[in-house]
Design a protein around this nucleic acid. Sequence first.
DNA 1: GGAAACCAAATCGTCATACTTTTGCGGTGT
DNA 2: ACACCGCAAAAGTATGACGATTTGGTTTCC
Lengths: 231, 231
Amino acid sequence: MEIQGLPGRVLDELGPAIASGEIPEGAVLRGEELEGRFGVSRTVVREAVRVLEGMRLVASRRRVGITVQPKSLWDVFDPMVIRWRLAGADRPAQLRSLGSLRVAVEPAAAALAATHATDDDRRELSSLAVELTVAAREADLTTFLGHDIAFHALVLRASGNEMFAHLGDTVGAVLTGRTEYHLMPHQPEPYAIRLHREVADAICGGDAAHAERAMRTIVTGALEELNLQLG
Amino acid sequence: MEIQGLPGRVLDELGPAIASGEIPEGAVLRGEELEGRFGVSRTVVREAVRVLEGMRLVASRRRVGITVQPKSLWDVFDPMVIRWRLAGADRPAQLRSLGSLRVAVEPAAAALAATHATDDDRRELSSLAVELTVAAREADLTTFLGHDIAFHALVLRASGNEMFAHLGDTVGAVLTGRTEYHLMPHQPEPYAIRLHREVADAICGGDAAHAERAMRTIVTGALEELNLQLG
DNA sequence: GGAAACCAAATCGTCATACTTTTGCGGTGT
DNA sequence: ACACCGCAAAAGTATGACGATTTGGTTTCC
């Protein structure tokens, strides 16, 4: 799901450098300079820069060059920007922002899912909840992570709201990052697991209020844990 | 805040055509065809297409052309995509999605603002609330809309969460669209106005729960009104 | 007759180059 | 000190040439 070819390669290097703050706000790059730095032609550099411009990471102006925009203008919802920031020095801030977003969105999505989910969704949700429980009991963190991601993505998708649905990948990235960087307990808490089952049961039973409450407990717990770990 | 030059012009025509569904999913465009259609060179077409590719609206593949991606892959949080969809045939669906998003995010933002807002924020919020009241009493819809947008944007910004803050413009676009298309009462409801004052007072007083509750009443009301109007 | 291998055309991808347009900066003159 | 003017630097655009790759048909061989 990446941009292909040479512009993609330029992007993969330039994007993270900017998103992580390595190239600071206000810095000015020249197209010619980038050509040399990456050993590609003008065409390629220009296309990569155009994409960064679409994300509002940079602005290109005649006679001056390609200037890195202030962070406040960045498209912070762009999946690439989120990935780049999660991978770089901005990771703590990005995790915090996403944590709050999850607290806002996921309970609402769970409530909607309770009334909008298809029968297939409900079945899959139930089975994910039990597999989650099994993986947790066996302390199989990799399998657990996969099912956890699938669970949250499914709830978001089952909400029937396309915007919520698109946060699935982002939430997945958060969960992955949290595990990779050891920002969560090495063994999933039994209480959190039970809450997942509760969410699944409530959604299957059409109990929106209960699903919302249980999901809110999950995500606020995750946010508190995060704030604890990050100080 | 637009992309400049010829690629921008191509984008302004091609983007809405795709986002509105006028060019359907799976449709295939050829670069050369676009050159003729817009009377510009390959360079320009390619850069515009790259930006659309960055938004996941299209994918460009050798020997086949530029194919419009299924809607489920679009970056539905991209401000340009949102604007294009709001302007086109997808407006109802887009308004519904954004309505649910507001219900999820704005109460959370209000709660955060109650503890994170600066003194300047609180002052400005208060003054916006009274100006809002005045404009509503005088039935000055244009001024009211401006203050309403500023109010919600300020709450989102004062939350201290950069992702919430970036939804300010989007919410502004929703409110503008709602007014333009006469999807709201021609005169603001006094009850809704009072709730805005309540939100402002709660945030100024640091009462997070109260701010959240009042804001939730506002946005759920707006969503219900929307569902009423759209059937 | 069917399947596998092969070939050719179509289309994007990349590069090199020349020309155009904008604009910041410095110099010049009052 | 101020305003004006011109130059040069940088991005913007256009075009021609070539390379890479994928698709789809065609041929060839069991």
